[in-house]
Write a protein that binds this DNA or RNA. Structure first.
Lengths: 244, 244
DNA sequence: AGGAATGCTTGATGTAGATCAAGCTTTACT
DNA sequence: AGTAAAGCTTGATCTACATCAAGCATTCCT
């Protein structure tokens, strides 16, 4: 039941320096010397097997994690056994800010597929934030982006109809892939329908129908989790509630 | 249209030291000397008249604000003229973290009534965070609480029925008042129905009906914005989706 | 003080999306 | 390989809530 990570390698296989995610993740804006300090602080890379938890609610805040490959979902579980998914974290994303309030995690983080994460222990984190201004700024930027994503999701859940929610989500994923050097046109979704429906605040059946509708309209092509965006502009224009 | 603050007083009328909000806001955990430094960094207290903006989207990130009295709402506006309210900030709350991502505010912040805020300029903020560890930690705690509030709202919008949303909101306000030394039983809501309905993701009419329903059931007493909670336990038990 | 505008409530009606139900496909397990 | 269990889709029905409509109360403005 508890967080059971295996295949822990002392020292990251790839230095931050050489990591393909370096400009998405923390290193952006650090000097060469600072980068060396960050790298030596990243004490290990862990493999989280599919369905295992990276951490659970009330676990002590041990580290900030950077997703290297795979995907993580965070969620809140209620007493009556329901859950609300809060976010999906893809390679280059940082996870773990939810524990800032009281040094205990306030949600669960689970691997959607076999996932590798870099760990920056909280003691290293504090030390680096205390001594390197650009590290502090980079961290603040990341926290700000996290808050921004949550604001966007609140807008989605509060204002949009179901078709628009899915359209907005798909364009978001496409842009994210683009910025990571992957295809914005064709990609695999890392999460099952069940999770995506929950995240977008609708029933699985409704989500499925919306996928079908977008496909019938010739906007996307759906093959289970493989999505091809045929008409990116039309997809984007379905998102009426874009921020001014 | 733009942010027009008036009645700016050089130097806060009440020092952080003596401020009734001190243990809710930043000072918690600071030594006497650190507190003096924080106080001297808080260069002014501003009055934001009702309906004026504290800041707007795309404004440069000039300060972190602490609400001393009154109330602030933050919101996202869409191109087609709709809005999603993201949060209500009451005395003791900190506002302005939304600009961490790129040094520009990513939402609007508007006064619901005449409001006084303390301003900690970003330059002071950076200086204090760089030199005082407990200041850094206090700030992280605040950011964590902000993220926690947003998670709670996502759960509310994603999982709850309308009556439950209102019940959860009201118990939350009651607890907040309690922790601030005000009555948890009787209080004025600072926001109009329109804003509360938007925040809770429902139509004003539905919100009004839910108020009426809770009143008919003898759980609360409603007189416009004056709310009296008659049966706190029953109200709380309507919130089925409490976190485990 | 008087009138207009805003805010709130209640009732009647319509509908987007939930729920229920069933079949099919893919993945997981022995 | 064969069977069980998940995962996904489509159709039929139902309902919680939105929308439309109207009236009253309160606040704002001159």
């Amino acid at each position: 039941m508890s967080s059971s990570r295996i295949s822990t390698n002392k020292k990251a296989a790839v230095a931050c320096n050489n990591c393909s995610l370096s400009d998405l993740c923390l290193p952006r804006g650090l000097t060469k010397e600072e980068l060396v300090r960050l790298e030596s602080a990243i004490d290990k890379t862990s493999k989280i097997p599919k369905k295992d938890y990276l951490y659970r609610r009330d676990d002590p805040h041990q580290a900030i994690y950077a997703v290297k490959s795979g995907a993580i979902k965070t969620s809140l579980s209620t007493l009556d056994g329901e859950e609300q998914i809060l976010g999906f974290y893809l390679p280059g994303d940082l996870v773990g800010f939810d524990a800032f309030a009281n040094s205990k995690h306030s949600c669960d983080a689970q691997a959607l597929e076999d996932t590798f994460v870099c760990e920056l222990s909280m003691s290293s984190f504090h030390e680096l934030c205390g001594s390197i201004a650009s590290m502090r700024n980079g961290m603040m930027r990341q926290v700000g982006m996290e808050i921004g994503r949550e604001h966007q999701l609140l807008l989605t859940l509060g204002q949009m109809r179901t078709e628009e929610r899915l359209a907005t989500f798909l364009t978001g994923i496409a842009e994210r892939n683009q910025s990571r050097g992957f295809s914005a046109r064709e990609f695999y979704l890392p999460m099952p329908r069940h999770d995506l429906a929950n995240y977008l605040g609708m029933a699985v059946e409704t989500l499925s129908r919306m996928f079908s509708r977008l496909q019938e309209d010739g906007i996307i092509s759906v093959n289970h989790r493989l999505i091809e965006i045929l008409a990116p502009e039309r997809l984007k224009s379905l998102g009426h509630h874009q921020c001014r």
